[in-house]
């Protein structure tokens, strides 16, 4: 848990200083006014990919435990969920990580985004069994996936 905390602080600091938690930088990405965020995501994915591949081949963590890699199969929520999230990301200029980062930076409206995001998650969770059939979602114990 100490490791998780240290990495999370580093992640938050990095999201702040890289512009990934900045309203205007996110709009510039969506408006194709700057290649910055596309470059960031490409380098991030490009370097993470071989690392995770090697770890999956090795099969263990560096402390010797069997590794648990997360699989993300496609399901009925993948595309509609993405569409809704895209609207939210463009409106607020924050994806979930930066909601917390900007809160730390002192942006008051990040509270509002966090309240909205938790309320949206709650709405989704309490209605899961009701919408599961129509949207072809995985069974409840699996959920839509961790991410």
């Amino acid at each position: 848990m100490i490791l998780v905390f240290i990495l999370s602080v580093a992640f938050g600091f990095l999201l702040s200083r890289s512009g990934a938690a900045d309203f205007d930088v996110i709009q510039q990405m969506f408006l194709f006014q700057s290649p910055h965020m596309y470059g960031l995501l490409a380098v991030g994915v490009g370097l993470t990919a071989p690392g995770l591949w090697l770890l999956s081949r090795y099969g263990r963590t560096l402390t010797g435990q069997p590794i648990h890699l997360s699989a993300k199969p496609i399901h009925g929520g993948s595309v509609p969920g993405g569409v809704l999230f895209g609207i939210g990301w463009a409106m607020t200029g924050m994806c979930p990580g930066p909601i917390l980062v900007t809160l730390g930076e002192g942006k008051i409206y990040a509270f509002a985004a966090l309240v909205g995001a938790v309320a949206g998650t709650w709405l989704f969770g309490v209605n899961y069994v009701r919408i599961q059939r129509y949207l072809k979602l995985p069974n409840l114990t699996t959920g839509t996936g961790a991410g």
């Binding site: 809704l84 607020t92 909205g116």
Partner: peptide, 12 residues
């Protein structure tokens, strides 16, 4: 906006 993000990310 947060509501869209909350419902959307969890659905996806």
């Amino acid at each position: 906006g947060g509501l869209f993000t909350g419902v959307g990310t969890r659905l996806a």
